[in-house]
Design a protein around this nucleic acid. Structure first.
Lengths: 343, 343
DNA sequence: TTGTAAGCGTTATCAC
DNA sequence: GTGATAACGCTTACAA
């Protein structure tokens, strides 16, 4: 059996349904638009039946072209291999489906060029809404998009000047709390490990909070800042080495700005035979699956990822449904979870 | 500033471009279709410029309606929170973009009703191709879909009767290898832990391989089969307890049929204060991020997830581009990685 | 090399 | 309640 449809019978259309039901296509269209009160009980049933018999599926490209909605939501994420991202996506997807929308998922791998490519692609599909965890390097294109007919909502990374709805977390509070905790435990050196900050608000906020606490305490680690590129082999390894060499015999800790960085730090620490927390303590953003099954369990800052996803998509729908109020910035709270990777 | 477009200026269309460039829209359409050889160098430039000036974005709903293709690929997955799934998705996404297609990601959470809903939705969007990790409970709908214009490719879970291209792995070989390894280490009891098999080929194959080896060795564990529902609280906990009670003082191991099950088994083992591998050994399908950072590192069977995703999308595109050869079943190989969680 | 015109499957505006 | 008919923005014969 050949997989291709030999009898490439053309699509069933609203016309076929109309003929089968013995009505005009306008009437069928009314049925599809659920305008039941302008339909005789009887015709409605005939149409219903015709649809079932013919196995008719309305064509969204056609209806989208004519009137309005594409019923498509774009979701542009920076790193889909990061569980943080997936969790947001997961929550968004559920709500999306319940509203009859579909999600187009686009992974930029933090590359502005890829992001731009996707933005154009999504525009071509005339998506109704966009949720984006942006590189921040395509602001003008996002503004253009919004000027057309697409509701844009920023997640995670904020760019206030754009005037978009934004769903993120308060990064300052838990970061400060974490650093203060470390200070109370008398850590002599504390490093901040992050992927390159590069104008990304989340990273910037975490860094700022980190530094401000140290500064307030006049702590020697104010410049123990390490920006690592995870896709450059050995970069993290070298920088970790650097910190370790610089802090022999000191009671030391690392504050890791996200879960993927934490994972790699732990891998590398294991490889070097370091004992956690004796030789090196670790505290990291993102509470992942494995955080509590490693030895010792990892002290983390848990973000309400599902809430972020849900809230973002809710905001998109509010816009789609006509809300024209000023842009909102919604900040959710993250929570410090103390575990064994810190004394 | 209000976010809504006050000057809801209508979309720029091919007509506007034609006017701006001083040519007919047919000519512009030719340009868009890259039929450059039937275009004068000069007109081509004019069109190019007009497009830039107007910031024109072709409307895919319109072109799709007329010409056939939607440039949409559906990706229906059973569990997006499983990193196995994400990895496949990740690979598919990259290729998709490079071909100018977009991915519509649909998570069924293993629920046939949700799956059906998504299938209809995707049909309405007239997707060109579908990659599906199916529940197996909507076969007729999948066949219908293929009969229309959608190329369907099965990933991970096989259903030979449907005659679809299928990308999966050889589950038998590594499972047998794993069990044989355990037997060589003289495990007295070996349990098989899996989410409910329920006709799902991957799970079934793993189970069959598991049992066949034990049978061949006349091993006492042939019936140590545990099917757990991860969304039912405590189900795994109880079943694990059951196995443990039944095997006091025996040298015992668990073969876990996927990474999420492994994770939960490890969590529960930790909670009970069990030492791995002394009190209980674990060997599990799926080599995840955290497999090697836990203590002891987990012995796993690593699936070539990126290859699966890439191969699946390649197959879809071959079909879309007109391949009508008989359906292929492509089996990739998984690899046993021995680590400390087994002696 | 370019243009005219028909049509893709809908919805919306009229009229009956 | 229902039905012609004209868009929506594009592609594709067919002409020129």
């Amino acid at each position: 059996m050949s997989q291709k449809q030999q009898d490439n019978k053309k699509q069933i259309t609203i016309n076929d349904v109309a003929k089968e039901a013995g009505v005009s296509k306008t009437t069928v269209s009314r049925y599809l638009g659920k305008q039941y009160d302008s339909l005789a009980e009887d015709t409605r049933k005939k149409i219903e039946e015709a649809i079932k018999i013919l196995d008719y599926k309305p064509n969204r490209m056609a209806s989208g072209l004519k009137g309005g909605r594409s019923y498509l939501i774009g979701m542009v994420v920076a790193d889909i291999t990061n569980p943080f991202t997936v969790s947001i996506l997961h929550a968004a997807e559920i709500l999306c489906r319940s509203k009859g929308y579909s999600l187009m998922v686009c992974n930029t791998n933090n590359d502005p060029k890829v992001e731009r490519e996707y933005i154009f692609m999504l525009q071509s599909h005339r998506i109704d809404g966009l949720i984006i965890n942006t590189t921040g390097k395509n602001n003008q294109f996002l503004l253009d998009m919004a000027k057309q007919r697409t509701s844009v909502v920023l997640v995670d990374r904020k760019i206030p000047e754009l005037g978009f709805d934004t769903i993120g977390i308060d990064n300052m509070t838990p970061t400060m709390e974490a650093v203060q905790f470390l200070l109370k435990q008398d850590y002599e050196r504390i490093a901040f490990f992050s992927e390159p900050v590069d104008g990304i608000s989340t990273r910037h906020e975490r860094l700022t909070a980190f530094q401000s606490v140290l500064k307030a305490h006049d702590h020697p680690s104010q410049n123990d800042i390490y920006e690592v590129s995870l896709n450059k082999a050995d970069d993290l390894k070298k920088q970790l080495e650097c910190f370790l060499n610089d802090t022999r015999n000191a009671k030391r800790a690392i504050f890791s700005a996200n879960g993927v960085v934490s994972l790699n730090l732990i891998k590398e620490s294991k490889a070097r035979g370091l004992k956690i927390p004796e030789d090196l303590s670790i505290i990291g953003f993102d509470d992942l699956d494995w955080s509590e099954i490693i030895t010792p369990p990892l002290t983390t800052i848990a973000q309400p990822t599902e809430d972020i996803g849900r809230t973002a998509i809710e905001r998109v729908f509010e816009r789609i449904e006509g809300d024209t109020s000023p842009p909102k910035e919604i900040l959710l709270s993250a929570r410090l979870k103390l575990r064994g990777s810190t004394h």
